[in-house]
Design a protein around this nucleic acid. Structure first.
Lengths: 105, 105
DNA sequence: GTTATAGGCAACCATCTGGTTGCATGTCAA
DNA sequence: TTGACATGCAACCAGATGGTTGCCTATAAC
């Protein structure tokens, strides 16, 4: 994973806001995502392209529309792989619980 | 906390690398942090100023030296307050363990 | 006191970034 | 097939960003 692309994508408030909107309602079109923003459709399109490059958003066409979906995996990977460096002891303990929760044998 | 400043500060690879160096050895001077980097002292100084503004680094003078210390708190806050939006269920569970570990009554 | 060392300040520069506008393309509907 | 709608592409622009160099200040060492 290209962590640098993810960090750079997350650096912009508008892009984080777009992720928030997709979190609220997944699978939105470009036009839908543009509504209510003080920004042109093209600006939003550029932001979405950056989010796609960072693999934070996945999209596919449906006819003339393009549907955008949130991909939270890179965020989770940063949490584990990078933040873990700084929260090492805590995260180690937390991950053992995570594993335990996911495989409750 | 100004999360935007933190995200923007973390967007640059050189700055993340400086945090890494402070993680490895805390309390370094500007000169020490510059050693071995393909960058001037002034460039490093600017990066450290941005990290200080984002409260990721705290510094104080000792004589003619300036000692820099890592502050991991904003990183942890982002993990909890922002990443939590996307990893909600997991983080909730993990935090309850965190609390439990910190207050083992 | 003089000199060396650690850092700060300011001007400057190239490139990146976030935005715009104008026009082209592709698809649905009548 | 004609028009409306959803998106893509490209050129352009102002301001932010990351870096440089040159010089200044403050403290330590001799």
């Amino acid at each position: 994973m290209d962590m640098d692309a993810v960090f750079r994508a997350l650096a912009d408030k508008s892009r984080r806001s777009l992720l928030d909107r997709l979190f609220g309602k997944n699978g939105q079109t470009l036009g839908e995502l543009t509504e209510g923003l003080a920004m042109s459709r093209q600006a939003v399109s550029k932001h979405l392209a950056i989010l796609e490059d960072a693999n934070l958003v996945a999209a596919h066409r449906r006819g003339r529309e393009k549907l955008h979906y949130l991909n939270p995996v890179p965020i989770a990977e940063i949490a584990v792989r990078w933040i873990g460096k700084y929260e090492h002891a805590q995260v180690e303990a937390l991950l053992s619980l995570k594993d335990h929760l996911e495989k409750p044998e």
